[in-house]
Amino acid sequence: MKAIIIGAGMGGLTAAIALRQIGIDTEVYERISENKPVGAAISVWSNGVKCLNYLGLEEQTAALGGIVQTMSYLDGHTGDTMCRFSMQPLIDEVGQRPYPIARGELQLMLMEAYGVHRINFGMQMVSVADGAGAATATFADGTTASADFIIGADGASSITREYVLGAPVTRRYAGYVNFNGLVQIDEAIGPATEWTTYVGDGQRVSVMPVAGGRFYFFFDVVLPEGVPYERGSAREVLREHFDGWAPGVQVLIDSLDPMATNRVEILDLDPFYTWVKGRVALLGDAAHNTTPDIGQGGCSAMEDAVALQWALRDHPDDVHAALTAYQDARTDRAADLVLKARKRCDVTHAKDPAQTAQWYRELRDEDGTNIIRGIVGNIMGGPVTPAP
Rank of each mutant, 00 (worst) to 15 (best):
Y198R: 03
I253V: 04
Q96P: 02
G95T: 10
V280H: 08
L252K: 11
V199Y: 03
A167I: 00
S127M: 13
G181T: 04
V249R: 04
L337F: 09
G244T: 10
Y360A: 03
D317R: 14
M71H: 10
A387F: 11
A41R: 01
L282G: 10
R279T: 08
K351E: 12
P100M: 07
G79Y: 03
T70N: 10
P37W: 12
M87Q: 12
F121P: 02
R172F: 00
T160S: 12
Y99V: 00
A137G: 13
T160I: 15
P316I: 14
T348E: 14
L238A: 06
G200S: 14
I17R: 04
Q96K: 03
A301E: 05
L108D: 09
T274V: 14
A113P: 04
D257Q: 04
G152E: 07
L238V: 04
I5D: 05
T356Y: 11
V264N: 14
L55F: 06
R239Y: 10
P89H: 05
S158D: 07
G382A: 08
V384A: 02
E366Y: 11
V319P: 05
N262V: 04
N289M: 05
I151M: 08
T70A: 01
W245R: 06
A387M: 14
V347E: 05
G79T: 06
I6N: 07
R103M: 03
I119C: 02
A41C: 00
G200I: 10
G122C: 03
Q184M: 08
W310K: 13
E194Q: 11
G79D: 03
I266Q: 10
D285T: 05
V177W: 09
S86M: 05
R344L: 01
Q250I: 03
Q355C: 04
G244A: 04
G152A: 12
E187N: 12
W45F: 12
